[in-house]
Amino acid sequence: MLRLPPFDFRAPRRLAEAAAILAGEGDGARVVAGGTDLWPNMKRRHQHATTVVSLMGIPELAAVDDGGGELRLGATATLAQVAASDAVRRRYPALACAVRSISSPPLRNMGTLGGNLCLDTRCTYYNQTEPWRRAIDFCMKEAGTVCWVAPSSPRCWAHAASDAAPMLCALGARVLLRAHDGERVVPLEELYRDDGIDYLNKRREEILCAVLLPAEAAVEHCAGSFWKLRRRGAIDFAVVSAAAAAWFDAGGAVERLRLVLGAVASRPLRVVAAEELLAGRRLDEEAVAEAARLARKAATPMDNTDFQAQWRGLMVERYAAAALRQAAGLEPGIRPPHHPL
């Protein structure tokens, strides 16, 4: 029976108190929100903690504030709340689509937006029980020195698995981080590092408090889209995902565009080459096909998910194309059976 190791559980009512505990407890402390990622990881002994600080008792972290300009989503708002939020559905429908594609209704009722953005990276050699991992010997992401996916590689290639992250990066979201000694706001994109082990650009004690969505990314200014490939119609993580956000000029040409891929690198992967190619062009079939090829080139799918890497590379191209087509108002080109929504 998988079971949690012993630890101290703290549930402060105020943010400042949570920040103080995290500062005081040192390396052994970490936060938990919905626990849908952390608890299983602790049960499988991937992640360790001597003190776990729950954020769920802090009311200010859960709020969704829509003043009509920037939309502020509290970090502990559940995925279900985000997907059902009137402001999200009306102003950022592509985000609602991405969040709805996460796992299953019970998980979305527990899991939070902040937890989703801080999700541990994943790999088939890593997301296993402890005896399983011990049997093949621990890899680099844990106590070992070798990567089982790419044995000659000096780094870990575990992939960023969040579905909200690529979409939010495409929409240009920023995040508010706070610790006992102050707070800062950074573009979400800058929160991530291209490293399967040390995947977040933040200090351990910094709490992600809110996600800020710019007004310019709302649907009246910006065309967003999200496509996700997964094995079954529910529960499974993305094997590939593609998020696009496009701003068009008065003549219908692309003024600006972001294309971000999920599950094919250790961070949400922006395809800058494609973005540059498309700037100033009309988003027609030819442009889409060229950009999609660049996306495939940029992605580094490894043999660490359900499917063969070669096939996933091919899928990157198709899913990037689907996301771009949809942003351009064209037929997405993938049959509905293969889109979960």
Binding site: S104, T124, N127, Q128, T129, W132, A135, R231, R232, G233, A234, I235, D236, D306, P340
Partner: peptide
């Protein structure tokens, strides 16, 4: 969807519902 994958050492590689895929209602 479902397949019990044993490796050459006789270890069942996908002994959890994360990897042993049952069809869902969808």
């Amino acid at each position: 969807y479902e397949q019990l994958v044993y490796d050459g050492e006789g270890q069942l590689l996908n002994a959890s519902f994360m990897d042993y895929l049952l069809p869902t209602a969808s």
